[in-house]
Every structure is written in structure tokens, then in C-alpha cells.
């Protein structure tokens, strides 16, 4: 048997997997690792979202994988091309933590919770159910999604390994 292939998703990046391949992204802090899975077709997708909304973008052209409001539509699009169906998609997410807390913190540094909120809003728009999440806190996470089972494995320094 061919060993499970690991596809890396970088920061402000997204990718899809099928045929039992795994998707992995490392060192999520305030960024959110959003994953989608079609349990019938075993098609998986993962986005490493850095910022909540592309409305603040001052770059052109924009990197769609970076913003929650553009990454999720793009991810869905790519999964449909692999045979997934929006009505079957299930979402999981992890990250969105606040690595440092400073007194009198400005809104721009509360980015983690805002990323989570924005991802939730996008999922709602597509009526994709959020099966489980491990978000918030003040620690980093590395996540890996199996396109075979849809299991999301989360690793952190303080809390070890858990599956959701």
C-alpha cells in the first residue's frame, strides 16, 4: 500500500486532498486552520487563514487564501472540482488564539477571535455545519486532516495531541 501522502499548507495558503492524502499546516497562532470534508467522496480541503476580511487589503492582486471571506469560497470551488458537493461538506476548525495579551490592546491585535468569527460567518453563508472546533486560548497549534476519515488531529505544546 502507498503510504499516506502529506500535503503541506503554508501560512495564508490553501489546498485540497483526496484518495487518503493528508493535509497539514503548522504553527497556527492567531491564524485559523479551517477544514472542509466531504464524507461521501472523501475529498478534503484546508485553508490557513491569516486575516478576517479582504476589505482591509492594500495589496493587488490579493492572495485569496489569506482572508476568511475569500479563502472559503475558493476552497469550496476547488473541492467541487474534485467531486465534492456543498450540501455534504462538514467543517472543522482550530487556531484563532491570542498568543500575547497586552494591556489596552488595540483591535488589530485581537485578530485571533476575529478570524474565528469571520470563518463562522462564511460557513453560515454556505450552510456548512461546523462539526467541531478547538479555537481560542493563548497557545499555538499544528493540525492535520485525513481525507480518508475527516479526522482532524491537533497538536500543541501545552496540551499534547487530540483528535476532533
Amino acid at each position: 500500500m502507498i503510504s499516506e501522502l502529506l500535503i503541506k499548507v503554508g501560512m495564508a495558503d490553501l489546498n485540497t486532498a483526496a484518495n487518503g492524502e493528508h493535509l497539514k499546516t503548522t504553527g497556527l497562532g492567531s491564524c485559523v486552520g479551517l477544514t472542509l470534508f466531504d464524507p461521501t467522496k472523501h475529498v478534503a480541503g484546508m485553508a490557513h487563514v491569516m486575516l478576517p476580511s479582504s476589505s482591509i487589503a492594500r495589496e493587488a492582486p490579493i492572495n485569496v487564501a489569506k482572508y476568511a471571506d475569500t479563502a472559503i469560497p475558493e476552497l469550496i470551488e476547488r473541492m467541487l472540482a474534485l467531486g465534492a458537493n456543498v450540501s455534504r461538506l462538514q467543517a472543522k476548525m482550530a487556531g484563532g488564539s491570542q498568543m500575547f495579551t497586552l494591556p489596552g490592546q488595540t483591535d488589530s491585535l485581537r485578530i485571533g477571535p476575529r478570524n474565528v468569527e469571520s470563518c463562522l460567518m462564511m460557513l453560515e453563508q454556505y450552510s456548512i455545519p461546523l462539526i467541531s472546533q478547538d479555537t481560542g486560548g493563548n497557545f499555538g497549534r499544528t493540525i492535520e486532516l485525513s481525507s480518508k476519515s475527516g479526522t482532524l488531529t491537533i497538536r500543541s505544546v501545552q496540551h499534547g495531541i487530540k483528535e476532533i
Partner: peptide
């Protein structure tokens, strides 16, 4: 102070660049 993964920590300092590029 944080005792954690370098990626999670350093990305916190890159947010101001996020909206400008990669």
C-alpha cells in the same frame, strides 16, 4: 512571554504586513 511554537509566535508580529502582501 510565550513558550510555544515559533510559527505561532512570530506570525503574531507579521499581522501589520498581512494586508500589504505576503
Amino acid at each position: 512571554i510565550a513558550h510555544d511554537m515559533a510559527g505561532a509566535i512570530l506570525s503574531y508580529g507579521l499581522m501589520q504586513y498581512g494586508e500589504m502582501g505576503d
